[in-house]
Design a protein around this nucleic acid. Structure first.
Length: 712
DNA sequence: GACCTGCTGCGGTATG
């Protein structure tokens, strides 16, 4: 029987009415798997390939009889905007089978939430944080709410995998399943992934990853037009005007997304491009979009992009990399390299979505190191490599959070029951039992938990209540402290708390120029008035990790003499320049260069962030005091280290324990999360070590590579 | 050398 024939008559009618010419490839595969097997599924395909419908066509076929009476499907997404987009798409299908669909997130009215709680049925679309809130604030309803849930659909599942947010979600799924009468099936939807170790299957179904089917649908290769232009410029932060003129010329006739890696740079770029357009007597068609611009302004920008009748461009950060629907764009421009291959892939995927359209990417670099990074990321992308998913290794911080949540949900419980619900939760099985006991003891000592005298039951303690009752409890990731920016009564956005925020200073926000008129530090608000000139605001952000593969590829690019066809003359020239020393020394890809200068020693390690950091701390233990790394994996030592080779060799020969590495780690280098602060010192250290240190791979790396010393 | 994500329930007042 064909996939279409397996669907219910009402769903078939929906497909006819909606005039879909045929089922998409991923739908053809998913429909029989959902209707005729009991496996968990991962549907992995490019954006706009019909993944959501691949899950919901068969699910609605299966639940159309009972969906009016019970909640049958939980749909979880990482963004409110994604839920809003999907709500309309799903609702259209649901009308044919009379299955209700509800959304629940921070912007949904209390009234709608009440309505759902009174008559839960059909499909619930929700964020992980709102799911958390149900366990905290609606605990008396959980029994009847979850009982008949059969399907859990997780959209953009790849964004949850390696983060504390994913650990929280995994814990919540287990807690939902505890209430469910019959086994649930989990269906993850994902952008195409590279998962050689089967990590996603293991995340979905830790007891039996073999019960997970992963469907990768390749929608065929689109032609990509790709170019990299280099505008050498060593001046900190400022981009050359010629670069902006080039962007302006390119974007006159085309809708484009112009990605920058920094919110401040987005603002500056939008203002400059509009000035250039204005000088030509053209309209100011460049919009700005990033997380610190107020939501209403961002939604307005999204609407303009979707409905514009002439080419419009948006200068943006990763906010527009995710699934928000702004229609298909003609071209993507990237200023400096993306940090990851995954990010480059997502961004390219935003163009050429209409049938028969090609994908166009133009990248600009201004520094040699960024050029090298851009070439490495591009080459890996062309080889179809992306960063593989990873575990959030030691979720002590999420465990702390979930213990508070469980105690609140259960209105107090015995130690055995608490231990049982933690030990059976798959996400906490990497934490030894003794450490869970230590954490509970610590939580009692600090009054996060309280043992009710006589009853032997644990309840949330007074300090715990303080954390739990805060609006901020529901999310496990942390955010920068900021000032909200107002013009009269209108909120324009926010800026990070920096010394530059001071009365009289000017800033750019939402593509407009402002002068700070007053600062209310009690309410964390600043008031601004329009200005004629301004500098971009300074946002504080700390760098994330670069995957080892990218660094290795950079070394490979340096050692090769290949001429990449997508480089312009300036880029080719610059690359030739930085390859010169390597060529002169005859360096190979499995070798690494150490440059010993008069006042400093530089190890060009190219090993990714984790190994670079680990080696930096190892060197400190060996008595090298003034040593730092940059984001690219270069290690810099102040002073001449003539014995560096011997030092590296002895590092590979000795035993290492994390205690000694921790003893030389500066406080600002420690890995912290929102809830790690509440752990005891020992567990804070474990969390740090699991995220930042890898002794085994570092020693292996040092043993594998041959080091070439160049003394000048 | 960084980007992004999320958020209760109640009681008040204004609006259609």
């Amino acid at each position: 029987m064909s996939a279409f024939e397996l669907l219910s008559p009402k769903i078939k009618k929906a497909i006819w009415d909606l005039k879909w010419p045929a089922l998409r490839p991923i739908q053809e595969v998913a429909i029989p798997l959902i209707l005729e097997t009991t496996d968990h599924l991962v549907l992995s395909a490019a954006t706009a390939s019909g993944k959501t419908e691949a899950a919901f066509l068969p699910i609605l076929s299966a639940i159309e009889q009972s969906g009016q009476d019970y909640l049958r499907v939980l749909y979880i997404a990482p963004l409110k905007a994604l839920i809003n987009d999907q709500f309309e798409r799903i609702e259209r299908l649901c009308e044919y089978v009379d299955v209700p669909v509800h959304k629940w997130h921070g912007d949904v009215s209390g009234n709608d939430k009440k309505k759902f709680i009174n008559t839960p049925a059909g499909i619930l679309q929700i964020t992980p944080e709102s799911l958390e809130s149900l366990f905290i604030n609606r605990s008396t309803f959980l029994q009847s709410l979850w009982k008949q849930v059969s399907y859990i659909v997780i959209d953009e599942i790849h964004v949850f995998l390696a983060t504390e947010r994913g650990a929280q979600l995994r814990s919540l799924l287990f807690r939902v399943q505890e209430y469910v009468a019959n086994p649930t099936r989990i269906i993850g939807l994902s952008a195409t992934v590279n998962d050689p170790d089967g990590y996603i299957a293991n995340w979905l179904s830790p007891e039996g990853p073999d019960q997970v089917k992963v469907i990768q649908s390749d929608d065929g290769d689109k032609e990509i037009f790709y170019a990299l232009h280099h505008y050498p410029n060593e001046e900190q932060g400022k981009l050359p005007l010629e670069l902006y003129r080039d962007i302006r010329d390119l974007t006159k006739e085309y809708s484009s997304m112009i990605f920058a890696n920094d919110r401040g740079l987005v603002e500056e770029t939008a203002v400059l491009l509009n000035r250039l357009a204005e000088h030509e007597g053209a309209p100011r068609d460049y919009l700005a979009h990033h997380s610190s611009i107020d939501k209403s302004e961002r939604e307005y920008v999204e609407e303009i992009l979707k409905t514009a009748n002439r080419p419009k461009s948006v200068v943006c950060t990763a906010t527009l990399e995710l699934g928000i629907d702004i229609g298909s764009m003609d071209m993507v421009i990237q200023i400096d390299s993306t940090f990851s291959v995954a990010s480059l892939k997502q961004r390219i995927g935003r163009t050429g979505r209409r049938d028969g359209m090609s994908q166009i990417l133009q990248i600009y670099t201004t520094k040699a190191s960024h050029l090298l990074h851009a070439v490495a990321v591009t080459e890996l992308f062309l080889e179809k490599w992306v960063e593989p998913p990873q575990a959030y290794a030691k979720p002590y911080d999420v465990l702390f959070h979930q213990i508070l949540s469980i105690c609140c949900e259960r209105n107090g419980l015995y130690l055995d029951d608490l231990m049982d619900s933690i030990l059976r939760n798959p996400v906490f099985q990497v934490i030894p039992r003794g450490h869970i006991v230590d954490l509970v003891d610590h939580m009692i000592k600090k009054e996060y938990l309280e043992l009710v005298p006589g009853a032997q039951e644990f309840i949330v303690g007074l300090e715990g209540e303080r954390i739990l009752r805060s609006r901020e409890f529901y999310s496990v990731f942390s955010v920068q402290e900021e000032y909200e920016v107002f013009h009269l009564n209108r909120r324009i956005g926010a800026v990070d708390k920096t010394p530059a925020v001071e009365v009289g200073n000017n800033l750019i926000l939402a593509g407009k120029l402002w002068s700070i008129e007053s600062v209310d530090s009690n309410k964390d608000k600043i008031y601004v008035v329009p200005a004629v000139d301004a500098k971009r605001p300074v946002f504080l952000g700390s760098g994330g990790a670069i995957h080892r593969m990218i660094s290795e590829k950079m070394q490979e690019v340096l050692c090769s003499n290949h001429l990449y066809s997508y480089l312009n003359d300036a880029a080719a020239q610059e690359l030739k320049g930085i390859r010169e020393v390597y060529a002169r020394l005859g360096v190979m890809a499995n070798q690494r260069v150490i440059i010993i200068g008069k006042n400093e020693t530089l190890i060009e390690l190219f090993a990714g962030t984790v190994i670079s950091n680990t080696l930096m701390w190892m060197l400190r233990v060996m008595g090298v005091e003034q040593v730092t790394t940059n984001g690219l994996g270069h290690i810099k030592i102040v002073g001449r280290q003539d014995g560096i080779l011997k030092l590296l060799e002895s590092i590979t020969k000795r035993e290492w324990n994390s205690q000694e590495l921790l003893s030389v780690t500066f406080p600002q280098e420690i890995y912290r999360t929102k809830f790690s602060f509440y752990l005891n010192e020992e567990q804070q250290k474990e969390l740090h070590v699991s995220a930042m240190v890898d002794v085994e791979r570092t020693v292996e790396f040092l043993s594998d590579k041959q080091f070439i010393v160049f003394t000048c």
